[in-house]
Design a binder for these strands. Structure first.
Lengths: 117, 117
DNA sequence: TACATAATTGCATGAATATGCAAATGAGTC
DNA sequence: GACTCATTTGCATATTCATGCAATTATGTA
């Protein structure tokens, strides 16, 4: 089996993704989107998202921009509102590709060699 | 299909993982382990890992500890050395579970409802 | 014991960034 | 235009955290 090392070249993209989700507030927002989706609500305005976090609206706005820049969220402007939605397929694909890469790099090797001296 | 929301309760674990990989130096170390695995080297001493980064050995040691705490690496002491290795299966599983959760939460819902007013 | 090597930890510093408030922008309504 | 609502942006502050150096711990060897 050929090892997929694409993710090594894509590490800039991964770094952005991990940075984006590696913050408590942003991960909360991320969770909120997942929970909303369960209730049938895919799109949320900034004001609505604010209700799930104990931070200023301006901070929420910045976090949403960061999540969008990292490819976690999509944004769509409609009138006065901006509706954000989860880029579920994109994230899931990225995560699965990474999982495959890691396993194909590491699982097949015959022995547990240590570093060369 | 039932939605898996386990990851919502596990968000502490995810936050640690994302925080750990959301740093350039640590992601480099992570990449280095994957590349080493391709060459048949699963285990690396701190000194060996140092060769891939342009930072002080003490910093490398701290990063390794952080990656271990986040479940990314395993550590095994042998004599004077500590050999770190990638927890490939663990990470891959976590990433796939998250990918599944995200998709099952978001993909099946019928319409593109907006938030309730 | 003395010494050498590997790794970790204490401490100080600097850089990155999360946050809140106030002001500004954008879009609709009167 | 004046007003309201939704969102973003400028700026100052606080906090987190990555880094380097020096000292310490742990282990093995002469």
């Amino acid at each position: 089996m050929k090892c997929e090392t694409n993710f090594i070249e894509n590490s800039e993209k991964l770094l952005k993704l991990f940075k984006a989700l590696g913050d408590k507030s942003r991960l909360n927002i991320f969770k909120y989107f997942c929970q909303c989706s369960l209730d049938g609500t895919q799109e949320n305005s900034v004001n609505n998202i604010k209700s799930c976090c104990d931070i200023d609206l301006s901070v929420v706005s910045r976090h949403l921009a960061a999540l969008k820049k990292a490819g976690v969220l999509n944004a769509k402007k409609e009138g006065k509102n901006v509706f954000y939605s989860l880029n579920a397929k994109g994230i899931a694909t990225t995560l699965r590709e990474l999982a495959d890469s890691i396993e194909s790099c590491c699982s097949d090797n015959t022995k547990n060699h240590k570093e060369k001296p």
